[in-house]
């Protein structure tokens, strides 16, 4: 099977280049990652991240024939030859298919991806009704592979400011959590013009997500919450006035 792979080693190369490989596959080689490991047997200088080999750890995300995806869950039979493999777009390349995810995780961290609850911890767990739990379906499954954010043109052109689909979906995941108490703070956090509102519904994120999630919709729902918050503020303000009058 023929491959064309993006190569760059800062120790040796001034510029990245594409290298062709022709590799003989064996029975049982079904996924792209299997083929990549065969190539690594031939040429151990090819660097890539990988770990669980079953689409759970999110390590081996890369640009496969122009589309971001996980090598371990991409079937070889679905790919046109030569298979063109490049690192995920828009992030600095450390080496070959390995990109520097620092910026991605900084954005992720900036939305405070953890429960904020100021009540004293109860004896047991903080409980949640099955209905409230169901609201997190389609949000919590994210494996942070970065395929969505690095396929988003808004992120390509504004990597410093735009949080990106992965981070924003996690922001919504905690807004939607019945146990979280920091809604106002979370919405305020995203109000700067370029953090949330750079999303133009291009939907590349939904197109590539290996977990079939919909960050685009989550972002739209954050805007809904903004409306609700404004309405509540107004109600509260009214109550304030009424109390004063009383």
């Amino acid at each position: 099977m023929k491959f064309s792979i993006y190569r760059f080693n800062p120790d040796v190369d001034k510029k990245p280049y594409m290298q062709d490989y022709d590799v003989v596959l064996e029975d049982g080689d079904q996924m792209l990652l299997d083929a990549l490991l065969r190539i690594k047997d031939l040429d151990d200088s090819l660097s890539l991240r990988k770990s669980c080999r079953e689409g759970v750890c999110g390590s081996d995300s890369m640009n496969i024939n122009g589309k971001n995806g996980l090598a371990c869950v991409t079937k070889l039979s679905d790919l046109d030859e030569p298979v063109v493999l490049r690192p995920m777009p828009g992030l600095p390349v450390i080496r070959d298919l390995v990109v520097d995810m620092t910026q991605f995780f900084e954005h992720y961290n900036s939305v405070k991806p953890y429960l904020i609850n100021h009540d004293a911890p109860p004896e047991t767990e903080r409980l949640q009704s099955p209905e409230d739990r169901a609201k997190l379906d389609g949000l919590y499954e994210c494996i942070l592979c970065g395929a969505c954010t690095t396929s988003c043109p808004s992120f390509w052109w504004n990597p410093e400011t735009f949080v990106g689909p992965a981070g924003l979906m996690q922001a919504y995941r905690f807004m939607a959590d019945s146990r979280d108490q920091a809604m106002d703070e979370r919405l305020e956090n995203l109000e700067a013009p370029d953090r949330l509102y750079r999303c133009h519904n291009i939907m590349n994120c939904v197109d590539v997500c290996p977990k079939k999630l919909n960050p685009s919709l989550a972002i739209a729902k954050i805007k809904d919450l903004k409306f609700e918050q404004a309405r509540e503020h107004k109600c509260n303000a009214k109550k304030h006035i009424e109390i004063k009058v009383l």
């Binding site: 080693n9 800062p10 120790d11 660097s47 450390i94 080496r95």
Partner: peptide
């Protein structure tokens, strides 16, 4: 035998 002598993300090593 490792061919790759690089200091950067040397997964072979």
């Amino acid at each position: 035998m490792i061919q790759d002598k690089s200091q950067v993300f040397n997964t072979a090593r």
